[in-house]
């Protein structure tokens, strides 16, 4: 639909689509809009009707990368999931840290790391995906710090209440952090599939 200059000296006519083309596009619009509605509606809890509809729209929405739920801070803003690590090097020194941390700049890169650790929280109880993500995190952190072994700990940072703050406590009080060991990995572990 490239525009061209008009071929007469009168007011140029805007190119209009043919009726057939507009009908065809209209059908696509109806399908597309229905898919956009089904996508967030299919996130549990959802009805069987919507879940069945997902079969019809899902592949299309995945292809278009429009299969989102739009659950921004819903149903409730929750605690954060972080990962702390301790890397052991062959010279006997250790490096410890936590991702995400505010040293990661720019802020967008910080959020990329944060989303990784948040995924770990989302995969809680998933025996297939969580080990894969933990292993990927361990291997990359070990590589970045040139370590021989690494120990990972999942850290859940609980949200403080207003009463907590009013009582004089801080949002980074150690008692708000819950730790759960994820394991110790040798570098040689990563050479195995």
């Amino acid at each position: 639909m490239n525009s061209t200059t008009p071929t007469s000296s009168t007011t140029p006519m805007s190119p209009r689509w043919s009726l057939g083309w507009r009908c065809l596009v209209s059908l696509w619009l109806l399908y597309h809009a229905a898919g956009l509605l089904v996508s967030p509606a299919s996130i549990p809890p959802s009805s069987q009707f919507v879940r069945n509809a997902w079969v019809f729209f899902g592949p299309y929405l995945q292809f278009m990368y429009m299969n989102q739920g739009h659950h921004f801070f819903a149903p409730d803003p929750g605690p954060s999931t972080l990962v702390s690590y301790e890397v052991e090097r062959d010279d006997g020194t250790t490096v410890s840290g936590r991702i995400p941390n505010l040293d990661i700049q720019p802020r967008l890169l910080y959020h990329r790391h944060f989303m990784l650790t948040e995924s770990l929280g989302a995969y809680e109880g998933d025996e297939r995906l969580q080990p894969l993500l933990v292993r990927a995190l361990a291997r990359q952190l070990c590589r970045e710090h040139e370590g021989d072994a690494i120990t990972l700990t999942k850290v859940t940072h609980m949200l403080p209440t207003m009463d907590w703050l009013r009582a004089g406590e801080r949002i980074d009080d150690p008692s708000l952090y819950q730790e759960q060991p994820l394991g110790r990995f040798e570098w040689s572990d990563f050479s195995q599939p």
């Binding site: 996130i43 801070f73 149903p75 954060s80 949200l159 207003m162 703050l165």
Partner: peptide
């Protein structure tokens, strides 16, 4: 949907949600 899905959470009813988002370190 951003609005509707918030109705599933209690914090968006009891007024705590914005606090919870802002108090997330």
């Amino acid at each position: 949907f951003a609005g509707v899905t918030k109705l599933k959470g209690t914090s968006w009813w009891d007024g705590n949600a914005v606090w919870m988002a802002l108090a997330n370190a």
